[in-house]
Design a protein around this nucleic acid. Sequence first.
DNA 1: CCGGATGATGATGTGTACAAATCCTCTGAT
DNA 2: ATCAGAGGATTTGTACACATCATCATCCGG
Lengths: 230, 230
Amino acid sequence: MTGEGRARFERIYALLRSRICLLDYPPGMRLREEDLAEEFETSRTPIRRVLARLEDEGYVRSVHGVGTMVTDIDSASLEQVYRLRVELSELIGRLSPIVPDAETIEAFDVMRRRCEALAKAPDQRTFAQLNMDFLDLLMTLTENEPLREFSERLYYQTTRFWLKTVAGLERHEEALASETDYFLREISDIATAVSCGALETVGQVRRAHVAMSYARLKARARGDVLPDEV
Amino acid sequence: MTGEGRARFERIYALLRSRICLLDYPPGMRLREEDLAEEFETSRTPIRRVLARLEDEGYVRSVHGVGTMVTDIDSASLEQVYRLRVELSELIGRLSPIVPDAETIEAFDVMRRRCEALAKAPDQRTFAQLNMDFLDLLMTLTENEPLREFSERLYYQTTRFWLKTVAGLERHEEALASETDYFLREISDIATAVSCGALETVGQVRRAHVAMSYARLKARARGDVLPDEV
DNA sequence: CCGGATGATGATGTGTACAAATCCTCTGAT
DNA sequence: ATCAGAGGATTTGTACACATCATCATCCGG
């Protein structure tokens, strides 16, 4: 596969993955190959190529004679993914870190401003999108390709369950506002560390925030109300 | 995909990956879909499903109108993969370790005896196979599925370049004997730690051995002759 | 009224013909 | 002799028809 066909493949793949992670395609939803083929104005064959990759990466599961369903995840698996994410976070600063240039530093500042704007009008979908963009930016700080790839995959696996949990909360608006606030602090901390060129610190800060984010998620799923939302 | 078709898919995938990693299919070799279809007594369609996965994981690359070639790797990428492997190795003991039962302990002892037998008649292919089996056994020590999956992938990415380098050495028989010896020490150390239930130690020992293995590989690739082979 | 067989329906999996792209060879003009 | 270009051969990518499988409604018998 190469050239134009490759570009189309990547485009459809990224779009479907995005839809799954943003819960446009919620867990359990059935994706019909023919419908997708029609939407993207092609035949089933290229669609099946995309779905095959999504299945290999665990986003969907195809069953002969039934359909292709968006997967769900149990809390045990989520815990494993989060724990691995925590460990990988720190590696950003240890494996082939790239010294940030002025442009990169500016990019982090743009993120900070985007988050400040979000804090004034919290929105779940915008939050998720900002989160993804921030991860992408973080990953430009290391040249370690496999690390980038795995970090991305683990992130995409967790984000939709984070969204599902937060959306289903009793006081989900308060929770979302609180999470936006935490995220703003994370971005600020990391932006500062980046501007100093302290990439090890970036990794440690990120690790701490991923770990705390999961702790809050678990607490909220239990029904706890966090102190700052009282 | 499910049932019998799934089983066949997994079988062919594992076999082709094994052939690539054991250098039966050396880097640069062209795989013809039709030939593979004939070998496995099927049509191109299921073969393409397997090749698509192998491509997504970086083992091959398909180019329209040309063919499907087994990939090669540059030393920079190899370095990145190894450095990540070193970090992941230690996580075996930290993420959801499983307390080894008598059967597991016995399995490690079987590995040790296999390696002792190998040391008496070093053989590159047997060495590689033992290495793979040992990794599989190691991975049974953690319940962290994503960690298992990623560790496997990184290992499979490195092993064929290890094989290629060692096979191409001037004094490759001495090098192979030496590596077998190092590997025996690793297995012994880890088997001991496992029998004590000290999984953190297992991770640390493994980490050290992976790091040293890569250091030796780099040294040998430079043309150095290691002290113990003089 | 219930229960199992049975066929209709709709989904994914497979086989195959054809399209598109690349590579190699042959030809012919300069 | 060399190089440009056309054309054929080869190989992957795509479209589509059909096979296979699971589900569900229906019907018949007890």
